[in-house]
C-alpha cells in the first residue's frame, strides 16, 4: 500500500460530528495540491439523519468516472457500525484504518491490511478531544498515501477556515501523532 497508486478510492465512515467530511475534504485538497483529479461525495441521506455519515473520496491521475466508492482501496472506519458495514467492501489487497478505541471486533479478512490505533483515547490523553479523526488521518497518510509535511500544511490551511485558525496547531499535532504511531 505504501506506493502511490494511479487511483486511490477512499471511504471514510463514522458518526455525524466525528469529522468524516472534514477528513474527506482534507484529502481532496491534498489531491488538488498535487494536480491530481479529485472527487468528494458525502452521504446526505437517511443514514446521515440517523447519526452515521460517510464520504467517498477519489484521488486519481486519470479523469474520474463515478465518484461513488462502493469498493474502497482504503476504509477509514471511525465507529463500529461503519466497520461492520464496510469491512467486506474493501478490495482484496486494500486496507482499513480503524479507531480501536471504538471498534473492538475480530478482523475477519486475511486479504487486507488492518491499521488499528486507539485514536479517540489518544486524543483524550493528549487533550485533543474531538481530533481522533485527524489522528486516524495521520495514520492513513503514513500507511497508505505518502504525503510530505509541506503538502499536509498546505491542505490543512485550505480546510481549516480562517476564523478557526487557532485550531491549526492542534490539527497538526493530531496528524503527527497518527503518523508516528507504531503498530
Amino acid at each position: 500500500m505504501a506506493n502511490k497508486q494511479k487511483t486511490t478510492r477512499i471511504l471514510i465512515a463514522g458518526f455525524g460530528g466525528q469529522g468524516v467530511l472534514f477528513v474527506g475534504k482534507f484529502l481532496a485538497y491534498v489531491g488538488m495540491a498535487e494536480d491530481r483529479q479529485v472527487s468528494w461525495l458525502p452521504s446526505y441521506g437517511p443514514e446521515m439523519r440517523g447519526g452515521t455519515a460517510n464520504c467517498s473520496v477519489i484521488l486519481s491521475d486519470d479523469p474520474i468516472g463515478s465518484p461513488i466508492v462502493d469498493a474502497p482501496d482504503v476504509l477509514i472506519a471511525m465507529n463500529l457500525p461503519s466497520f461492520q458495514k464496510y469491512q467486506d467492501a474493501v478490495v482484496p489487497g486494500g486496507a482499513i484504518v480503524l479507531d480501536s478505541s471504538l471498534i473492538n471486533e475480530a478482523y475477519a479478512r486475511k486479504d487486507i491490511t488492518y491499521f488499528a490505533l486507539p485514536a479517540t483515547q489518544m486524543a483524550t490523553d493528549e487533550q485533543l478531544d474531538g481530533l481522533g479523526n485527524m489522528i486516524l488521518l495521520g495514520k492513513f497518510l503514513e500507511a497508505c498515501l505518502p504525503t510530505s509535511g509541506e503538502l499536509i500544511q498546505k491542505a490543512l490551511a485550505k480546510v481549516v477556515p480562517a476564523k478557526k485558525e487557532h485550531l491549526l496547531a492542534a490539527n497538526q499535532k493530531a496528524i503527527a501523532l497518527g503518523r508516528a504511531h507504531q503498530g
Partner: peptide, 10 residues
C-alpha cells in the same frame, strides 16, 4: 441529481 449537486470537485 442529488449526487452531482452534493459532490465536490475542483
Amino acid at each position: 441529481d442529488g449526487t452531482i449537486g452534493q459532490m465536490m470537485e475542483p
